[in-house]
Simulated assay, not measured.
Amino acid sequence: MSVVALIVAAGRGSRAGEGAPKQYRPLAGQPVLTRTLRAFLAHPEIDHTAVVIHPDDEDLYRASIERLEPDLTGRLLPVAYGGETRQDSVRNGLEALATTGAETVLIHDAARPFVSAGLIGRAIEAGRSGASVPGVPVTDTIKVTGPRGEVVSTPDRSTLRAVQTPQAFPLDLVLGIHRKAAAANLHAFTDDGALAEWAGLAVQVFDGDRDNVKITHPADFTEAERRLKGHSMTYVTRLGTGFDVHAFAEGDHVWLGGIRVPHDRGVLAHSDGDVVLHALTDAVLGALADGDIGTHFPPSDPQWKGASSDRFLAHAAGLVRARGGLIDHLDTTLLCEKPRLGPHREAMRQRIAEIAGLRLDQVSLKATTTEKLGFTGRSEGIAAQAAATIRLPEVES
């Protein structure tokens, strides 16, 4: 039975921070995609491999396959081009494979370069029987929460699995499912197993591999580099703090945590006056011992007039990555009588995580009043204090 692999590499990888899409970034000297492709092209049971890429990435793709051994590139099929969503990209790739005569297809994320030959073999065996996905047991207790953050239920973790790729299917079956979903104007499925469930098919879970990690955030690159180098890197933990304040002025909104919050006042500031992002930026710079926000973005420079403060925090986070470091946690307390933080807290946490390239659970955001005391208590202004915990490679003396 002929087997093909479809590598999905059309995403932008925005959570990995600034730079090229993550599948083309170097990992121990080779692009992530090169490492992923080698695992499939070298597997004796894979007949051919195809890649779905973004139309703008042809040069990056060519540079990636140039790193492959000549005897492997002969098993590469022409590329397919991605669509608006991952689901669209997978469907485009499957359509390109429809004329190959293959019976089984393995669909794999390009950002999982540690896929093993054993896992690929298990996927092939499972895919010959029907829709199959690899999964690993969940070790943490999982809570289902409601709209106010309250716990709704605690599922039995012995029944839970964290699903990975490659996911395996009979080619005709999964292509038919994708066509059916597209005809129904459904395009948001991020997992082909979930799409098969939607179509009413039984989906089997076979043994995954805990080493088959997906590179998503900047910290994942550091961990992957360390793993490939075969030794543990020693880090030193740094803590930095930041504080920012702005007086209220005429206006109808304030910027907080990268979110536009309606308010009966604005703030007096050179940039957009986002006290949360300003305090966080100073906290990260403080942990780096690299000056403060005014050093990097002087208010005397007209280019920062009205600037969006997400640029400041992204810059500070980029400095951490440039030094081979990791941001472990960002914590902020907003000090004001109004506006209320509650309705906007989760949106702000999500935006901060996006700017800094972190997971949501690495961002904390709180608020307090000052019991009507001081300038914040008199509603004359707004303030924020922040702390950042980072790790930097230890420098030997």
Results as ranks from 00 to 15, higher is better:
273 G>Y: 02
38 R>M: 03
27 L>Q: 05
365 L>A: 05
366 K>H: 15
375 F>A: 14
268 L>P: 05
160 L>H: 06
138 V>K: 04
195 L>K: 06
210 R>P: 12
334 L>S: 10
356 A>I: 12
184 A>T: 12
105 V>W: 10
250 E>D: 13
60 L>H: 11
215 I>G: 02
246 H>N: 14
243 F>H: 13
173 L>S: 13
236 V>W: 01
133 V>T: 08
183 A>L: 09
360 L>W: 02
392 L>Y: 01
339 P>Y: 10
216 T>A: 05
18 E>M: 09
391 R>Y: 00
10 A>S: 15
131 A>M: 12
158 S>K: 07
51 V>A: 03
220 D>V: 00
100 T>K: 07
388 A>M: 03
150 E>G: 14
330 L>S: 07
390 I>K: 00
324 G>P: 07
57 D>Q: 01
214 K>R: 13
140 D>F: 08
6 L>P: 01
268 L>D: 14
320 V>F: 04
155 P>F: 09
246 H>G: 10
363 V>C: 06
181 A>G: 02
200 G>L: 01
166 P>E: 10
39 A>L: 01
74 G>N: 10
68 L>N: 03
14 S>C: 01
114 F>H: 01
337 E>Y: 01
279 A>R: 05
33 L>D: 00
10 A>W: 00
74 G>F: 06
103 E>P: 09
151 V>Q: 09
391 R>Q: 15
251 G>K: 09
267 V>D: 11
287 A>V: 11
138 V>M: 15
286 G>N: 13
387 A>G: 12
97 L>E: 04
38 R>F: 09
257 G>D: 04
248 F>A: 12
99 T>V: 15
328 D>I: 05
324 G>Q: 08
290 D>H: 11
314 A>M: 00
150 E>A: 05
187 H>W: 00
174 V>W: 11
390 I>Q: 00
211 D>M: 10
178 H>D: 12
278 H>V: 00
23 Q>T: 09
86 R>I: 05
124 I>F: 00
14 S>A: 14
49 T>L: 03
260 R>N: 10
289 A>K: 15
344 H>E: 07
325 G>R: 00
264 D>S: 11
140 D>Y: 09
196 A>H: 07
386 A>P: 04
187 H>D: 11
27 L>T: 05
320 V>N: 11
340 R>L: 13
11 G>E: 02
191 D>Q: 08
24 Y>N: 01
385 Q>K: 15
329 H>C: 02
192 D>Q: 13
274 D>N: 13
222 T>M: 03
128 R>F: 03
389 T>D: 00
313 L>R: 02
214 K>T: 14
295 T>D: 15
347 A>I: 00
169 F>S: 02
271 S>Y: 08
179 R>T: 09
226 R>H: 06
137 P>D: 10
336 C>M: 03
161 R>Q: 14
57 D>T: 05
301 D>L: 05
44 P>G: 06
162 A>T: 06
354 E>Y: 08
279 A>K: 07
208 G>A: 01
283 A>G: 09
17 G>W: 15
328 D>S: 08
261 V>S: 13
291 G>V: 13
23 Q>G: 08
120 I>F: 10
84 E>I: 01
117 A>F: 13
164 Q>C: 05
94 L>T: 14
199 A>D: 14
337 E>H: 02
143 K>M: 09
